[in-house]
Amino acid sequence: MAKMTLEELRKLRAGEKQALSNREIEGKEVQVIIGMGTCGIAAGAKETMDGFVNTINANGLKNVTIRQTGCMGLCYAEPTVEVKMAGMADTIYGNVDAEVAKKIVEHHIMNKRLVNKHIFDKPAADITQ
């Protein structure tokens, strides 16, 4: 890849904006919150975040924001990720590596299906069945 200038970046962004306005946005904003404390980082949260960015962009999802937070208090289950979106209970997933991140995007965010094995908090047991 040739070195990109700020001007080129601006053009890419403008192109993306155009694509965004052409697409009908389904539903509301989706928020993915990744625990990036010392514990999260040690457990590989950086790769998790890369995984989310890759899969979200590969699927052309435009209404997802990714935020980073400190430790959520579940250090034994790091990397932890919370997903908030309309139509789904707020869910905390644990032990999320890049592979699981891909599943969360494809199942939870795109198809409103929980990734059962990695749920750590929130939805009542009867929902996860």
Partner: peptide, 23 residues
């Protein structure tokens, strides 16, 4: 240039931009 940096789309572009500088 990118607007809200927390949008996954911005993050993708930002990462491409930084990768091109680093290379």
């Amino acid at each position: 240039i990118l607007g809200d940096l927390n949008r996954a789309g911005s993050m993708g572009l930002l990462r491409d931009f930084i990768a091109s500088q680093e290379e």
